[in-house]
Every structure is written in structure tokens, then in C-alpha cells.
């Protein structure tokens, strides 16, 4: 928080900027520009920005979108400077604070994101961008019901905000309320088809509602548009691989789990899942190698020791190594199963 305040103070003394009425007449284009940035249509956004610079050169809001474009292009330092510049010039603009807060969130600077989201909502409790960011952060802080309430309000005020729908969807996903999650992820991908995360979540939630073809299409769509950047999803291949295994398409499943292992080799779950598949394919030596790699991974990715022991016990039994099979069977017995929720 202190660093943010100091930076804002510093920027306040450097650049006088034009007033907001310099944007009059550009409202429609500004809205298009904002949406283009939101959905990562950066070429479109760049074209609109250039046009507005000519027609409304003193419009302050252009600076905000310039910052967002820089961020979307990965120019982090430049984006930070632009955000600072904008929030210094328009310190009461809740949207500017919210976008800046999201910038920090994307940089994993959670303290500043937290502070700015609170500041943004303080400036304008009805700003959808502020509500969305604050809601997301409250959920991350464990205040799920408060966060959910803000996100619900955000989508009510701005039903076209894909991020708010995405965040709400993740809340329902976590609550295993798949039909509600599907609603919001469908809206998210409808508003921002370039969001691979939302396609992945949509597919994951279509599985339990029984729309398997829909899930398959969503996975494929997500993989098709999965690009490095804010909407990138590192687990699409992993999730699609698992799905294909359940649909008994083992060869295609292997292809995706191979890619998952290549892209996220530090995650235990991807090695574990490929080992399970190799067990099904009766490729026992490969299953042993992958299960051992899973055991050695530091990042569990949701896969617990019990699962590894159980798998290794099966692998060694299939390989005829009775001593190791028994060793891991004993470990399986000694390891207590996970404690789930108190209710069901």
C-alpha cells in the first residue's frame, strides 16, 4: 500500500493532463475500444485508439486504454507507467483504479491489488469493474459470500462483462453447482471467445451436467484459441486428456497428456494422470516412470500422496515386482484418506 501511495505521489508532480470533457463525442468509440481490449482484440483496439488520438487528442481516458493495451501486449513496465500516469490524473476514477488493481493482480502483487480494489469500490460502489475486481479479491481472501455478492451485483450492472461472469462461474464451479457455473461460463465465452480459461471451465462443468459433446467442443475451442497471455490456460491439455480417457479415446488422451507433461512438468497431477492412462494402456514401464516422476514433484496440483502410493502399488504389481508392490500397498494402507467436507 505504501509503495502505491508513494508512486502516485511521485506521478502527481510530473504530468498535468487534460480534463474529462475532452472526451465528449467519443463515448461510443471509447466503449468499443474498452471492449476490444477486454476481449484481447488488440489490432482493433489499436486502430480505434489511433483514430481517437486524432479526433480527441486530449481525452484522458485514452491513456487508460493505452495502459491496458500495453499490459495485454506484455509491456509491463510501460503499462505500469501509463496506469500510474492515468490514476494520478484521474484519482477519483474508480474504473482506472480497478484496472490498475487488476494489473497488479495479474502481476501477482496481491497487496496492491487488494488496496486498489478497495479504493476503487470506495470511489464508486456501483462501478462494475470495481465490483468485479473487489469481488474476485474477496473470494481469494476467503470471503466467498461477500465476494459472490459483489460479483452478482457487477453482472447485474454490466451483463456484458466477461470477467465478472468468469469469476462468478469459478465460484459456482468450486461449489460444484455445475449448471450455474455453465450459465456464467457460457456468457463469458460468448462475450470473450478468446478466453481459454473460460472454455476450459465451461467444458469441466458440462461434464457433470452430462453434455459430453458440448464439453468436447468446449475443450477443442479452448485449445484452438489458447495463446500465451492473460487468458491462457495451462491445464487445458490435462483436462481434455482426462476427459478423453473417460470417453475411452485413449490414444487421443495420451496425445493431450503428453502435451500437458511438456507444458507443466513441475505439476504432479499431469504425470500422475499420464501414468494412470498408461496403466489402462498396459504400458507398465512408462506408467512406472511417470508415477515415479509424479512422486518426485514438489507441486501436487491436487494429487495427494495416497493416490501416488496406490498407483505405484498397482504399477509394481503389474510389473511383477512383488516387493515394491507390497511396499506401496503398505504405504497406501497407512496413509489416511483425505478428509472431505463436514457435510454432503
Amino acid at each position: 500500500m505504501r509503495a502505491v501511495a508513494l508512486s502516485l505521489l511521485f506521478l502527481a508532480s510530473t504530468a498535468p493532463l487534460a480534463p474529462a470533457d475532452a472526451c465528449i463525442g467519443a463515448e461510443g468509440q471509447l466503449a468499443q475500444l474498452s471492449r476490444a481490449v477486454t476481449v484481447s482484440s488488440l489490432d482493433t483496439a489499436g486502430n480505434i485508439l489511433r483514430s481517437l488520438r486524432l479526433s480527441h487528442p486530449d481525452c484522458l481516458e485514452l491513456l487508460l486504454h493505452e495502459a491496458r493495451i500495453a499490459e495485454a501486449k506484455g509491456s509491463i513496465t510501460q503499462a505500469a507507467e501509463l496506469y500510474y500516469h492515468y490514476t494520478d490524473a484521474a484519482p477519483n476514477d474508480s474504473r482506472g483504479l480497478a484496472y490498475f488493481g487488476r494489473f497488479f493482480l495479474n502481476q501477482h502483487d496481491y497487496m496492491r491489488a487488494d488496496a486498489l480494489s478497495a479504493a476503487a469500490l470506495g470511489k464508486n460502489p456501483s462501478d462494475p469493474a470495481a465490483l468485479t475486481l473487489r469481488g474476485q479479491i474477496l473470494v481469494m481472501k476467503g470471503q466467498s459470500s461477500e465476494g459472490q455478492a459483489l460479483l452478482e451485483k457487477a453482472v447485474a450492472l454490466d451483463p456484458d462483462d466477461p470477467e465478472a461472469h468468469f469469476q462468478l462461474g469459478t465460484i459456482y464451479d468450486k461449489a460444484k453447482a455445475a449448471p450455474r457455473a455453465v450459465e456464467h461460463f457460457r456468457k463469458a465465452v460468448g462475450l470473450n471467445p478468446s478466453d481459454a480459461r473460460a472454455w476450459d471451465y465451461l467444458a469441466l462443468n458440462l461434464e457433470p451436467v452430462g453434455d459430453l459433446d458440448g464439453a468436447d467442443q468446449a475443450y477443442r475451442k479452448g485449445l484452438q484459441i489458447n495463446q500465451p497471455g492473460r487468458f491462457h490456460d495451462a491445464f487445458l491439455d490435462y483436462n481434455y486428456g482426462r476427459f478423453l480417457a473417460k470417453r475411452n479415446d485413449l490414444v487421443a488422451s495420451k496425445r493431450h497428456l503428453d502435451r500437458a507433461v511438456e507444458s507443466t512438468p513441475q505439476i504432479r497431477a499431469v504425470w500422475y494422470e499420464r501414468a494412470r492412462l498408461e496403466m489402462r494402456m498396459q504400458a507398465y514401464p512408462q506408467a512406472r516412470a511417470d508415477a515415479q516422476k509424479a512422486a518426485a514433484c514438489s507441486q501436487q496440483g491436487g494429487t495427494i500422496d495416497l493416490q501416488i502410493y496406490s498407483l505405484l502399488s498397482q504399477v509394481y504389481a503389474r510389473l511383477g515386482d512383488t516387493a515394491l508392490a507390497q511396499k506401496y500397498a503398505d504405504l497406501t494402507r497407512k496413509t489416511p484418506p483425505p478428509v472431505r467436507g463436514e457435510q454432503r
Binding site: Q307, Y309, A317, A325
Partner: peptide, 16 residues
């Protein structure tokens, strides 16, 4: 059960 692979599902966790 563990040795016969029926203690848990193939995902190594119990069910209800």
C-alpha cells in the same frame, strides 16, 4: 483390498 485394487477407485481415493 489394496493389493486387489478394490480399496479405492483407480484415482486412489475412496468414495461413499
Amino acid at each position: 483390498g489394496v493389493e486387489a485394487f478394490v480399496a479405492y477407485t483407480d484415482n486412489g481415493v475412496p468414495v461413499s
